[in-house]
Design a protein around this nucleic acid. Structure first.
Length: 306
DNA sequence: CAAGCGTGGCG
DNA sequence: TCGCCAAGCTT
C-alpha cells in the first residue's frame, strides 16, 4: 500500500475544511459557475457573495442576461471593480445564446472563445461545472505547487504552460477526483498557503512540502510593481463610471466634468470607457452607460400637415 | 510581455 | 495612516 498522494492529502483536508461557498453547492449550474469565476477574477470572495446572488436571481440563465442591456449588467455588477467584466459577461450571454443555443459550452476551445474567458476561467468551468479533468491553475495553485513541489517561495506572475503541466501531474486520473483536487489546491492557497503569512501548522502537506523541507526561504518582496491608484486614469474612470452608474439615463457632460479637474486626463478616461464598451455618447452634450435606453433617438414624428 | 484595468478591507 | 492586496484577461 502506497502513501497518500499530494492530491489525496489536500483533497481530504478540503472535504473537511472547505468554506461553504454558494458556487460550490451541488447542482449549481454551469452558468452560475461561470458567473462566479468571472466575478472572482481579482475580487475577494466576501465582496463577490452578494453580487453573485443578485446577479443570478435576476439572470438565472444566459438567455435572460442576453435580453438585458450592458447598462443593467454594469449596475448589478455594483462596485466589484473592473466593470469591463460585467460587459464581457453580458457579451458571453449573447454569444452563448447565439453560438450554443443558450447552454454554456463544455469544450475548452469553445469556452476560451467567449469574451473575458481566459486560460484559468475556461478550465475552471470545464472542471467545476462539467467534471472534466483539466489542470485549473490560478495564482493560488501556482504558489502551492511552486512551494510544495519546487521548494520555491513564490511562483511567477503569470500562468505559463509549464505551470499547467506541473499541476496536471499532480491530478488523480478520475475526472471527478481531479476537479475536487483542483478546488482543494485553490482553497489551500487561499486560506493556508497564502503569499505573505502561510499557516504551515494547519497545512495537510507540511511534512512533504519541498519549501518547508528546504528551510522555507522567505517569500520575495512584491512580484508586481506597486500599483498606484490615486491620480491615475483608473481612478478617473472609476469616478466617471460612479456618476453614470447612479444616474438613470443620459448624464450631461457638465456633471462628468465635475468629477476631475484635469481636462486632458478626464477626456482620456472617458474615451477609454467608450472604447471599452462601457459608456456611449448620446448626443454632443451627454453620455450614458451602454444601452441605457433606446439605442437611437426616437424617430421624429412627421411634421403635422397644415 | 509588461502595462492597463476598480475597489474596499486590512496589517 | 496608507501601502498592499484579491480565484485574470486583453493588448
Amino acid at each position: 500500500m502506497t502513501e497518500p498522494t499530494f492530491a489525496a492529502l489536500v483533497s481530504r483536508w478540503y472535504t473537511e475544511n472547505a468554506r461553504d461557498l454558494p458556487w460550490r453547492a451541488p447542482g449549481v449550474s454551469p452558468w452560475a459557475v461561470l458567473v462566479s469565476e468571472v466575478m472572482l477574477q481579482q475580487t475577494p470572495v466576501a465582496r463577490v457573495l452578494p453580487a453573485y446572488e443578485a446577479w443570478l436571481a435576476r439572470w438565472p440563465v444566459p438567455a435572460a442576461l442576453a435580453e438585458a442591456s450592458p447598462a443593467e449588467a454594469i449596475r448589478v455588477w455594483g462596485r466589484l471593480g473592473y466593470p469591463r467584466r460585467a460587459v464581457r459577461l453580458w457579451e458571453c450571454a449573447v454569444a452563448i445564446v447565439e453560438r450554443h443555443g443558450g447552454k454554456v459550452p463544455d469544450r475548452l476551445e469553445q469556452l476560451l472563445a467567449l469574451p473575458g474567458v481566459g486560460t484559468y476561467t475556461a478550465r475552471a468551468v470545464a472542471a467545476f461545472a462539467y467534471g472534466q479533468r483539466h489542470p485549473v491553475v490560478d495564482t493560488n495553485v501556482r504558489r502551492v505547487v511552486c512551494r510544495a513541489v519546487a521548494g520555491q517561495p513564490d511562483a511567477g506572475p503569470a500562468t505559463r504552460p509549464a505551470d499547467l503541466v506541473a499541476t496536471e501531474a499532480l491530478l488523480p486520473e478520475d475526472p471527478a477526483a481531479a476537479a475536487l483536487a483542483s478546488a482543494a489546491f485553490m482553497e489551500l492557497g487561499a486560506v493556508v498557503c497564502t503569499a505573505r503569512s502561510p499557516l504551515c501548522h494547519r497545512c495537510p502537506v507540511e511534512t512533504i512540502c519541498a519549501w518547508r523541507a528546504s528551510g522555507q526561504e522567505a517569500p520575495a518582496g512584491p512580484t508586481r510593481r506597486p500599483q498606484r491608484y490615486a491620480g491615475t486614469d483608473r481612478q478617473v474612470r472609476g469616478l466617471l463610471l460612479g456618476v453614470l452608474r447612479e444616474a438613470t439615463g443620459p448624464v450631461p457632460r457638465q456633471r462628468l466634468d465635475a468629477v476631475w479637474t484635469d481636462d486632458v486626463q478626464r477626456a482620456r478616461a472617458l474615451d477609454g470607457l467608450v472604447r471599452d464598451g462601457l459608456v456611449e455618447p448620446v448626443d454632443a452634450d451627454s453620455y450614458r452607460l451602454v444601452g441605457d435606453g433606446p439605442s437611437r433617438p426616437a424617430v421624429p414624428l412627421p411634421a403635422l400637415p397644415g
